[in-house]
Amino acid sequence: MDTLLLVLRVGLSLAVVIVLLWMAQKRWSKGSRPAAETDLQVVSRRSVGQKASVVVVDADGRRFLLGVTEHAINVLHDGPAPVAAPVAEPAFAHSMQEAGVRQDGMADAGPLPLRARHHRPKQDALSGSILSSRTWQQAGAAVRKGLNL
């Protein structure tokens, strides 16, 4: 009789633990479900009141202006989403020109100049670590500079 009670207690305890784990998994996995197949991007959001805002959303090649309140979402305007043209950064374009690469991505004829733009001193394995003496020297110099010593 004692063995039967022990088996029932262990079984009941195991069932309770399994149910609790299942409930916790259901509760915390709500946000991890895969999103719908539509391409949705929030472009901008502006608050216009305590509980109201205006949101610009791109979805499936369309741009929507939405009015969002506590109780409703209304489409204020919609139209085709603008296509963003790639913008070349002037610094990047200048670097590419110095490297001898034309606008179409092909290299210019002729040798490319070899320049060492950024020279880094050789670093040991402890560089930047709290165990490095150089780190302690830099920290001391920073403290002395802060204290005007």
Rank of each mutant, 00 (worst) to 15 (best):
L5C: 06
V55A: 04
A139L: 14
A24Q: 03
R120V: 09
S53H: 03
A72L: 05
G128K: 06
V48D: 05
R102C: 02
G110R: 08
H118Y: 13
R27Y: 07
T38A: 14
T38Q: 13
G105M: 08
A142W: 02
A109H: 07
L149P: 00
S132P: 00
D2R: 12
M96Q: 11
R9T: 12
F92R: 13
G105Q: 07
P82A: 12
H77A: 15
Q97W: 11
G79V: 05
Q137S: 10
L21E: 03
A52H: 02
A139R: 13
L112G: 01
N148H: 09
L21P: 00
A15L: 15
D124E: 12
L40M: 10
L126P: 00
Q123W: 00
E70W: 03
A142V: 08
F92K: 11
M1G: 13
I130K: 07
A59H: 08
A84W: 01
V101I: 15
D60F: 01
L147T: 03
V48K: 04
W22L: 11
G105H: 07
P34S: 10
S13C: 10
G31V: 11
L40S: 05
V42N: 02
T135E: 02
W28L: 12
D2Q: 11
T135F: 13
I18W: 07
Q103P: 01
L8Y: 02
G140F: 07
P86L: 13
V16M: 13
G105V: 09
R144L: 15
G100R: 12
S95F: 14
S47P: 00
V75S: 04
L76C: 04
T38H: 13
S129G: 02
L114I: 08
V48A: 03
A99G: 08
L21W: 04
L8K: 09
V54Q: 04
P90R: 11
L112K: 11
L6R: 14
V101K: 05
L131A: 07
P121K: 14
Q50Y: 05
A24G: 03
H118G: 01
Q25E: 08
A125D: 10
S127G: 00
K51E: 07
V43I: 15
D58V: 00
S29F: 06
L76R: 13
T3E: 12
L20W: 05
D108N: 14
G110Q: 08
V101S: 03
H77Q: 15
Q137H: 09
D108G: 00
G146I: 01
S13H: 03
E70P: 00
V19D: 03
P80E: 09
A107V: 14
P90N: 08
V42R: 04
Q41V: 07
G31C: 04
